[in-house]
Nucleic acid binder design. Sequence first.
DNA 1: AAGAGTCTCAACCGCTAGTTT
DNA 2: CAAACTAGCGGTTGAGACTCT
Length: 214
Amino acid sequence: MGRQPCCDKAGMRRGTWTAEEDQKLVNFIINNGVHCWRLVPKLAGLMRCGKSCRLRWTNYLRPDLRREAISQEEETQIIQLHSRLGNRWSKIASYFPGRTDNEIKNHWNTRIKKRLNLPGLNPPATHELIDPPNANNPETIGMKPKQEDKISGFDRPIWMPFEITNAGEIRLQVNSSGSCSSSSAQHSLCASSSFPSSEATISLDDLFFYGNLL
DNA sequence: AAGAGTCTCAACCGCTAGTTT
DNA sequence: CAAACTAGCGGTTGAGACTCT
């Protein structure tokens, strides 16, 4: 049979942590480290479940956490990363040592999202966001059709360079001149008679608008 | 001053992939 | 191999802080 449950939920404390609980958890982890979160509350003398202890430690008590507000530069980087990774907060947080996924998610939901009016940052239902071929190049947005396009036959991923404007808007850099066949997206856009002239920068909304005209 | 509305963020919930028995 | 569990993730909630009228 399987293993023992992580905790007996009956009698477990919930809600805001007290300073005393924090102290107990910090002392225990500093002295013993963490080998199994299930055992931490028991050994540390806490009436909390292991999951709650893990969350409290990773999001608030870890000594390597940065407690200062997220800077403008970090925010710009978050916007760039979100545009190609989507809501993969832990992945985005991995680019910011000392920041937690919860912190970045909260910052996004309460500040950035409102400012940017974001519906266009999500791919259409037919596409999904994917990692770029080069993880060190955050200036490329990537998405892939979920199924092969019945009309064009394309099922290759789309890679689009982009930039953040001063207004905080995502602009895709689309070269619609003669040499536009390197990706299916650019090829399709060139084929659209209503697409703006060459060297255009367009919004993600516009990309799918023009794409849908085909 | 106080009540209402809004914002922030810590904490919880539910799910999934991977692990253990 | 199946069942039960753990750790980690993203979505959501709600209490307290803050701002507005």
